[in-house]
Simulated assay, not measured.
Amino acid sequence: MRYFLVMIMAAAIALPVQAANAAENTASVGDSQGVAAPAPHKVKARTPHEKGQGVAKLQEVDTVSKALTAPNKSPATIVATIVEKVDGQKNRYIVDDGTGRMTAAIGPKALKGVNLAPGMKIRLKGKIRVAADKAPVMGVRAVHVIK
């Protein structure tokens, strides 16, 4: 008896929900079978930043002035002169290419044993790193001394 009462209550609760769903998904009024039609497929317009669309290719930076305004992670190849080593910061150098000055982070792997001195002309290859409220820094992956 209890089971029968539980089944009736469950059917009473589920029946209005099923009726509402059936009213939304039924075929046209003239359809004699009353078969539910599939819901229309909604296509969402994608923006270029969504997954699957790919990332816009960043332009390679070739001067310090362009690097100072470039977006984060922009590839860069800059020919510049070492101005000085930044005091108190390991592996940081100020470089100048005639269009401006910026800081370059040149690690020991990129240096490969080369000792940098002020006045040396070098080619730096790496990426521009832009942090909030800070000046852009070039993360250098390779250094080539130009004679």
Results as ranks from 00 to 15, higher is better:
residue 10 A to G: 07
residue 12 A to R: 08
residue 136 P to M: 06
residue 21 N to E: 14
residue 86 V to C: 08
residue 5 L to Y: 03
residue 29 V to T: 11
residue 135 A to S: 08
residue 46 R to N: 10
residue 80 A to E: 02
residue 48 P to A: 06
residue 31 D to Q: 09
residue 79 V to F: 02
residue 82 I to N: 05
residue 15 L to D: 00
residue 128 I to A: 00
residue 4 F to R: 14
residue 44 K to V: 14
residue 78 I to W: 02
residue 3 Y to R: 12
residue 121 K to M: 03
residue 60 E to G: 10
residue 51 K to C: 09
residue 11 A to H: 02
residue 87 D to T: 14
residue 106 I to Q: 11
residue 86 V to Q: 09
residue 134 K to G: 01
residue 91 N to K: 06
residue 29 V to H: 07
residue 73 K to L: 13
residue 62 D to Y: 00
residue 91 N to S: 12
residue 63 T to A: 01
residue 54 G to H: 07
residue 127 K to H: 12
residue 117 A to W: 01
residue 53 Q to Y: 00
residue 43 V to K: 08
residue 94 I to E: 10
residue 122 I to L: 15
residue 115 N to H: 07
residue 97 D to K: 07
residue 30 G to I: 12
residue 27 A to C: 13
residue 134 K to V: 07
residue 134 K to Y: 02
residue 76 A to W: 01
residue 141 R to M: 11
residue 46 R to E: 09
residue 118 P to D: 05
residue 88 G to A: 08
residue 114 V to W: 01
residue 54 G to W: 05
residue 96 D to F: 07
residue 74 S to L: 04
residue 92 R to N: 11
residue 115 N to K: 09
residue 94 I to Y: 02
residue 123 R to W: 03
residue 117 A to F: 02
residue 140 V to D: 11
residue 12 A to M: 15
residue 100 G to Y: 04
residue 124 L to I: 06
residue 146 I to A: 06
residue 16 P to L: 07
residue 100 G to R: 05
residue 147 K to R: 14
residue 91 N to A: 12
residue 85 K to I: 02
residue 33 Q to K: 10
residue 96 D to P: 09
residue 58 L to W: 00
residue 81 T to W: 02
residue 138 M to P: 03
residue 12 A to P: 02
residue 122 I to K: 03
residue 38 P to R: 11
residue 38 P to F: 01
residue 35 V to H: 08
residue 68 L to N: 04
residue 75 P to V: 04
residue 49 H to M: 07
residue 37 A to C: 03
residue 55 V to N: 10
residue 18 Q to H: 09
residue 125 K to E: 10
residue 32 S to P: 11
residue 20 A to P: 00
residue 1 M to T: 05
residue 24 E to K: 15
residue 119 G to T: 04
residue 18 Q to F: 14
residue 114 V to Q: 12
residue 55 V to K: 14
residue 1 M to L: 01
residue 23 A to K: 15
residue 118 P to Y: 00
residue 55 V to L: 13
residue 44 K to S: 15
residue 71 P to L: 05
residue 87 D to C: 00
residue 89 Q to W: 12
residue 17 V to A: 15
residue 4 F to K: 13
residue 81 T to N: 09
residue 139 G to N: 15
residue 27 A to P: 01
residue 6 V to L: 11
residue 93 Y to I: 08
residue 95 V to N: 06
residue 124 L to W: 02
residue 106 I to L: 11
residue 9 M to R: 09
residue 134 K to F: 04
residue 17 V to R: 07
residue 84 E to Y: 01
residue 12 A to Q: 10
residue 33 Q to M: 13
residue 25 N to Y: 13
residue 103 T to L: 10
residue 41 H to V: 15
